[in-house]
């Protein structure tokens, strides 16, 4: 099993994701350069956080045009798991691989703090090992995480169970006080209609080791690994 982490110019959580996947989960990890038009030999792709291309124009917009993205799109189309974290989520939105758009945080400021999110869907490779309603604690760190989708689209997303996470309080209640950025309906993460592409604003890689205060984020990566292993078992068996 080999996991790929895309490196855009301006990514700044790429090394963190590599660290967690390689040293905490003990997996084979390869860095995927934004300028390479192909991604071969990987079983999952992570688009890390940061400020790809400085987030100039709009967060994630320029990165969505980079040479690697057609390959990421094709990988996703063939059912490959793709995870976008924070800026990676913004890139997936701008690339049209996930529905919706990001606005500036309603508080108009960058927000870095731990939040709680509730698992709303277990149909993605990254959440299938979790329980619906499970509450996870992990940090956010973003200035544009105010999720928006216009009305008909929002209805579709919700009906087709594409909302993967919502901001909630420590008890799992989805309340406005727990919404750190003004996201519509407290949406913290969404997935593609097939479920194999997931984007979320919180940083699971920053909550993957006890010493950093939470291991809730690691469950997403462990879920992915278990999902990939079960699929391999099916293929082999």
């Amino acid at each position: 099993m080999r996991l790929g982490v895309v490196v855009f110019p301006g990514s700044n959580c790429d090394r963190d994701c590599v660290h967690v996947l390689r040293h905490v989960l003990g997996r084979d990890v390869v860095e995927l350069w934004h300028g390479d038009p192909a991604i071969e030999g990987v079983d999952a792709v992570v688009l890390p956080g940061g400020f790809a291309y400085g987030d100039y124009l709009r967060a994630g917009a320029v990165a969505a045009t980079s040479p690697i993205m057609p390959a990421v799109r094709a990988f996703a189309a063939s059912g490959g798991p793709v995870l976008g974290i924070c800026n990676g989520f913004q890139v997936l939105l701008e690339a049209g691989m996930l529905p919706g758009a990001m606005l500036r945080n309603h508080v108009l400021k960058f927000q870095c703090k731990p939040v709680h999110i509730r698992v709303e869907s277990t149909r993605t490779p990254f959440t299938h090992g979790l329980r619906e309603g499970q509450v996870l604690r992990m940090p956010i760190a973003h200035g544009e995480g105010n999720y928006f989708a216009p009305d008909p689209l929002l209805a579709t997303i919700q009906e087709s169970e594409q909302v993967a996470f919502r901001y909630c309080d420590a008890h799992g209640r989805v309340v406005s006080e727990a919404n750190p950025n003004g996201s519509l309906n407290n949406i913290a993460g969404v997935c593609s209609p097939q479920g194999n592409v997931l984007g979320l604003m919180p940083h699971p890689e920053r909550a993957s080791e006890e010493v950093l205060g939470s291991t809730d984020g690691r469950m997403l990566f462990e879920s992915l690994v278990a999902w990939l292993e079960s699929r391999r078992a099916v293929v082999v068996g």
């Binding site: 090394r15 660290h19 956080g49 870095c112 760190a141 940083h203 080791e209 010493v211």
Partner: peptide, 26 residues
């Protein structure tokens, strides 16, 4: 809270938690 204080996955003691910031050196 306006500063990203947890990037680079080293921050054990974030601002406000203790008298000094603590970074792990893995």
């Amino acid at each position: 809270e306006q500063y990203d204080h947890s990037v680079q996955v080293r921050t054990v003691m974030p601002p406000g938690a203790a008298d000094a910031a603590v970074l792990r050196v893995h």
